[in-house]
């Protein structure tokens, strides 16, 4: 046994490891699950693009050995929109954090879901702004302490699965970085799904969140994820809100069919133009017939 190389190093920019994340941070686990999911899916990796915004989770775009775009804060989804529409052959995955996607980028999140753009959005939710040192964010539970809620948070958080489901996402799931095998499967389903798919990944932030709230080390939160999770596939996402120390509802909440932005666009334009839209629509209809 002389392997001195991690079996996933070929999917990573291994020359950049160790990465910048703190000891016990779960983002590395979510990143592993992504590359494993991609490897097993067997999509041509040259055509997979990871787009991120700003923040700890957004650094993933620079560690995976894929085309990676580390864009501006909150703008990963619209950047990904441009990439995907300009080259529909690309598999475009947005990988970013809760603050990036749901606060500064919240408007883009709901509009991309409304359009049902064929994107996969992976949102690592660590309940806090980690990169800037532990300020509360759009997902911080009530009463949690942060550097900007020193007396406890009194802003109600977003329930992200409910938000994106209400906005029109066709695939919505939530797992934690403890549930690695489930997470890999969810990533695969989300990537394979046509349309706007969203996976929320709960993850410990030992430095910015746990320490300030006296919740112990990352390991404590992993134990919490293990002990307090309840898997309820098909649960109404509206009932999956998160309270500090409370039960965590996990699972695949939404998996429905709805025409994507591109499909609707082609169908609409095919009424006016022979090519290229009518051609595409005809091909699609034929392909569907072959399948059924």
């Amino acid at each position: 046994m002389t392997e001195a190389q991690h079996p996933l190093d070929h999917l990573l920019r291994a020359d950049r490891l160790p990465h910048i994340w703190c000891p016990g941070c779960g983002i590395g686990i979510a990143m592993r699950c992504l590359v494993l999911a991609l490897e097993e899916l067997g999509r041509p990796l040259d055509r997979v693009v990871v787009v991120s915004g700003i923040g700890c989770s957004a650094r993933v775009a620079g560690y995976v050995r894929l085309d990676g775009f580390h864009t501006t804060h909150g703008r990963a989804i619209p950047f990904a929109t441009g990439l995907k529409l300009a080259n529909p052959d690309l598999t475009v995955i947005v990988f970013s954090g809760d603050g990036d996607l749901a606060a500064i980028g919240g408007n883009h999140l709901i509009h991309a879901a409304r359009r049902n753009l064929d994107l996969t959005v992976i949102c690592v939710n660590n309940f806090i702004y980690g990169m800037t040192g532990g300020q509360f964010g759009p997902t911080t539970p009530l009463a949690a302490r942060s550097t900007t809620t020193p007396y406890g948070n009194f802003e109600p958080p977003f329930n992200l699965p409910a938000l994106v489901a209400a906005s029109g996402a066709v695939y919505v799931a939530r797992w934690t970085v403890f549930h690695v095998r489930r997470l890999i499967a969810a990533f695969q389903e989300a990537i394979a799904k046509k349309g706007f798919s969203f996976v929320e990944v709960l993850s410990p932030c030992p430095t910015g969140y746990l320490r300030r709230n006296k919740l112990g080390e990352a390991l404590e939160m992993m134990r919490y994820f293990k002990a307090q999770s309840e898997i309820r596939h098909g649960a109404d996402p509206a009932e999956a809100g998160i309270e500090m120390g409370g039960k965590l509802i996990l699972g695949k909440f939404v998996d429905i069919e709805r025409p994507t932005y591109q499909e609707r666009m082609r169908k609409q334009l095919a009424m006016f133009f022979i090519e290229p839209y009518a051609e595409k629509v005809r091909e699609e209809i034929e392909a569907e017939e072959v399948e059924s």
Binding site: G82, L83, H108, E275
Partner: peptide, 25 residues
Amino acid sequence: GGTFIQMEDEIASLSAVLGASWAGV
């Protein structure tokens, strides 16, 4: 055969333009 999209704001508009440019368009 080009693509037009009306975005949710001007921030998103320029983001999408930059993304499209990196797709080679």
